[in-house]
Simulated assay, not measured.
Amino acid sequence: MNQPLRTVATLFVSDLHLDDARPEATALFLRFLREEAMHADALYILGDLFEAWVGDDDPSAVAAAVAGGLRAVSDHGVPVYFIRGNRDFLLGPGYARRCGMRLLPDPCVTMLYGRPALLMHGDLLCSDDQAYQAFRRQVRDPAWQRDFLRQPLPQRQAFAAQARAASKAHMQGVREEITDVTPATVEATLARFGVGLLIHGHTHRPAVHSLVAAGHPRKRIVLGDWYRQGSVLRVDTDGFELAALG
C-alpha cells in the first residue's frame, strides 16, 4: 500500500471474497478505501466482494464494516459501482443503499476517459463449464431468488455453505481450461458490444491480454483475487496499471 499513486484514477477491484474467517483481507480492503479510493474518480467492484451473500438481512460484522467503509467513500463524493458476482449475486438494493453504491447490470458498458469499456464479473465468459452455467441460470432466476430469500436466515446460510462445498468439489473435478474463459466467447462478446476494452474478474488469473475480435485489436484486463494479496486496476488519462497490494 506504499506505492506512489500515478494520478487521480478510476479504480477496479473484484474477487475479494471477504468473510469473518479472513480478517486480514477485510482490513486491507478498508485501508485501501481510506487511503486510495477516497481520492479516486470512481470505484468499481466487479463482483464477489463477499465469500457468500444470502440476503441483505445478513448481520455479519464484515458486512457492517464494509458498508461503513464504502459509505465513507461515497459520502466523500466518489461514485461507487457494483456488479454482482457468482458468490454475492443476491446482494440487493437494501445493502447497496447502506454502502452508497449503485448496482450495475452484468455486462455493462461505461466510459473511461472518453473510451468505452465493457465491464463484467467474468463468469459468463466461462461458457465451457456447462454445469456451472446451468447452476447460474437457476439461481439468477427472479422466481428462484424470491423463494430463496423468503426462507429463514439459518436455512439460507446452510444452503450457501453446501453450495461452496459443492463448488470446491466441482472445481477439483474439471480441467483447468474449463474454469477459465472461453476465447471464442470473449471474442464474440467484444464484437457484440463493439468495444476495444474488456475488464473482468472471476477467474483469479490477473493479466492483460491482447487479441483480435471482428478484425479489430482488443484488450482484456483480468483482475486478481484478494486471497493472498490485494489486486487493483488503476485507469487514468495516461493509461492503466494492474497492481498488487500488500
Rank of each mutant, 00 (worst) to 15 (best):
E241I: 12
V8R: 15
R136N: 01
V13Y: 00
G122S: 08
R205K: 10
G77H: 01
H170W: 06
A67M: 05
G194Y: 00
A65W: 02
A96H: 00
D20T: 13
A52G: 13
G122E: 05
A161K: 06
R140V: 07
D236M: 12
L125Q: 01
H39W: 03
Q155L: 13
L149G: 09
R98S: 08
Q157G: 07
M120C: 02
V232F: 07
S127P: 09
L11P: 12
A214I: 00
A65E: 14
Q162E: 11
P23G: 03
L104F: 00
G77C: 13
V80N: 03
R98N: 02
G201H: 00
I83M: 11
R102P: 00
R84D: 04
R136C: 05
Y227G: 07
L11E: 01
V186I: 14
L33C: 10
P142K: 01
E51S: 12
E24L: 09
V78F: 12
G230L: 10
L70H: 06
Q3H: 10
G122P: 04
L46D: 01
R140G: 05
D147G: 02
S167M: 01
A166R: 13
V13I: 15
L28F: 08
L90S: 06
R31C: 11
L149H: 10
R6Y: 08
V232P: 11
E187K: 14
K219M: 15
P23I: 02
T110H: 12
R97E: 15
A158L: 13
R31Q: 13
H170F: 08
P105T: 04
Q145V: 02
V54D: 09
W144A: 07
G196E: 09
V174F: 00
V174T: 07
E177I: 05
T189D: 03
F12R: 12
A158E: 06
I83A: 12
F240L: 10
D141A: 11
E24H: 13
Q138L: 15
V181S: 07
Q157A: 12
D48A: 02
G94W: 03
M1D: 13
R228D: 14
M101T: 00
H209Q: 12
R84S: 15
H202W: 00
D129N: 10
I83T: 04
A184N: 07
F29L: 06
L119F: 09
R34P: 00
R234N: 08
A96M: 05
G69I: 09
G69R: 08
L18G: 11
L197F: 04
A134K: 11
F50Y: 15
